[in-house]
Nucleic acid binder design. Structure first.
Lengths: 336, 336
DNA sequence: CACCAAAATGAAAGCGCTCTCATTGCGGGC
DNA sequence: GCCCGCAATGAGAGCGCTTTCATTTTGGTG
């Protein structure tokens, strides 16, 4: 309600005794300006506390200088997984050194103005980062079709021409976890898989099976979970019923691994003595379970930085961006 | 790189055979338009897929339609606490039904363009939400001084005129936890306090002491932590050394409670039989510790919604916003 | 049927910025 | 001393929108 308007380019120009164009030039460093004039302008800017008006700038430049982070999680269950939170923080950090703002778009499909797809396509953002994608989600296709620079986290089920993604090597991760169990001498290895509509699930499963095959071990039983703690408890119970003699479990994420741990304890199985357990993600919780979880760590910070770099490259029209698959790492603790 | 520009008001106007002003009116519902013309315009909009240009709108309206969520956490340690993540999600959800965008500003003091304070003051946002404040942070004062609508999460140490905050009743929460321990018959009750530079810490401590006084119990030992898991382990060890006979602990958050649990187990104390433990926050982890944590739940969703409502009220110049303190709730599980 | 108020619409002025194009100023080569 | 070329600067158009103000249309009344 204060009616004092912030200084504009013209204000500064007048104060410095030059034209608006010149001030613009020094603000943007876009052309040479004589040292004397440059100093005058700088002084005027400092004195008036001038800050460029973003809207005006965006209008003429046809850029918004902001990128959307779309979280595709209709149900709160998966939001409980701190992995997503760490992703958000990592992306925000990766963006901190750029001029881009991070806009969080919490997307239950069409909450905002009309469809989410329309909203995102509506030129509100220079680019879009998609996290926690499901295989049947049409959004990435729509965005690419609308020429909106887009990078998704996690390999899409079907490659979409022009869609870049950053993923961690889930096949390798599944293999890493399973090979570790094998190296421990375990022979009856089961797995708790994640939701089938995220590619991480089949990928980790593929790594699991490949490692088993390499070790000439029979394919262990598979139970399905949905990345939540309770689903891990249930899946473990199911596994125990189906294969009471199992001596190891590879869980599709740490949350489910924690659930499995609880079921194992309830059933009187000691971990890792009777049953070894390996999780996935290395979320904070992995330190706190009893026993502490051996798990596969994903390079969240690297992934975030890579996504941001790829996206900005696309926004700037640089050629040659390529999807990236980052390696994972086994973190050995006490559960296996 | 595509050179086809999106449709503008003029495009639509021409297609509908009316003036730009009229189209603007139907888009904004700002004035009456005859039904026939209205329909024509709607058709044209639908056909062309017109979406208003946000920058142009912002320029003339002097609004950005976006609000900043500033996370004031220089060190990653506190970021590991999922409480913050749940806050982010809750705020994002609370904003989903409004026209405002949520911009995440991850603020290690002056990463972006110049000082954070300047950046935030630079008119990039209509309002600011501050989370995880520390008592010595000058930012809220600066913002209020610059007439930037601001709402902070958590009571500031010294009331700042014009600064609204939303907090949960930490004194009451500390009391709730402690009274529960007292009601369990515990008599030697210790506490692990959080970082002293957040008001939640002295407040919870005050509640703790008040409850002890009410029960005519001596003031128990206090150890200091920093809200992290390791600090909880250390603080518990210290407490055990100083007061080996203690039979209950109230921890300033769940993370430290989990650490305390681990130390207790290592020292051979059974929970809750030998030592009862109560945490604070009811983060997801509270379900997964062994035993599951009894804890104080903060109304995160309510708090988020309240913050958003207050902020939007301020932005719209509505009078009469008041700081709010929300009640907490004791969640009984197995640790006490 | 003429008249006037009210309703509907249009014309146009900016919002603050960038950038093209034109103009000015300057030094050096002849 | 004059002219040319380049560096420095300024003038001004326009980005897409909202909004005031003027104008046209409409419809009710005498």
């Amino acid at each position: 309600m204060s009616d004092v308007r912030p200084p504009t380019l013209d204000t500064v120009a007048e104060a410095a005794g030059v034209s608006r164009a010149t001030v613009s030039r020094v603000v943007n460093g876009t052309a040479r300006v004589s040292p004397r004039v440059h100093a005058q302008v700088e002084n005027a800017i400092a004195e008036l506390g001038y800050v460029p008006n973003r809207a005006a700038r965006n209008l003429v430049n046809r850029r918004t200088d902001s990128i959307a982070l779309v979280l595709r999680e209709p149900d709160a269950t998966v939001l409980a997984d701190p992995y997503l939170g760490s992703m958000i923080i990592a992306i925000s950090r990766a963006l901190a050194d750029t001029t881009f703002q991070l806009v969080l778009v919490n997307a239950r499909n069409d909450s905002k103005h009309g469809t989410l797809a329309d909203y995102v396509r509506g030129g509100h953002f220079d680019g879009v980062l998609l996290a926690s994608m499901h295989t049947d989600d049409p959004l990435p296709g729509v965005l690419v079709g609308s020429h909106v620079p887009t990078v998704v986290s996690g390999r899409p089920e079907h490659p979409i021409p022009g869609l870049l993604f950053v993923d961690s090597d889930n096949v390798g991760g599944g293999r890493l976890a399973t090979e570790h169990l094998v190296s421990l001498g375990r022979r009856r290895i089961a797995t708790i898989a994640g939701p089938p509509d995220m590619t991480a699930t089949p990928d980790r499963l593929a790594g699991f099976r490949a490692a088993l095959a390499d070790a000439a071990l029979p394919e262990g039983p598979v139970a399905a979970g949905d990345f939540t703690h309770p689903s891990g408890e249930r899946a473990m119970a199911e596994l125990l019923d189906r294969a009471p003699e199992l001596d190891a479990v590879f869980a599709g994420n740490d949350m489910m691994a924690a659930g499995a741990l609880r079921t194992l304890r309830a059933r009187g199985r000691r971990v890792p003595d009777d049953v070894a357990v390996v999780g996935y993600d290395d979320i904070d919780l992995a330190h706190h379970t009893e026993p502490a979880l051996t798990t596969v760590r994903q390079p969240v910070d690297d992934a975030a930085r890579t996504m941001v770099d790829l996206l900005i490259g696309q926004i700037n029209g640089e050629p040659g961006g390529e999807s990236v698959v980052l390696p994972n790492e086994l973190v050995k603790r006490d559960s296996a």
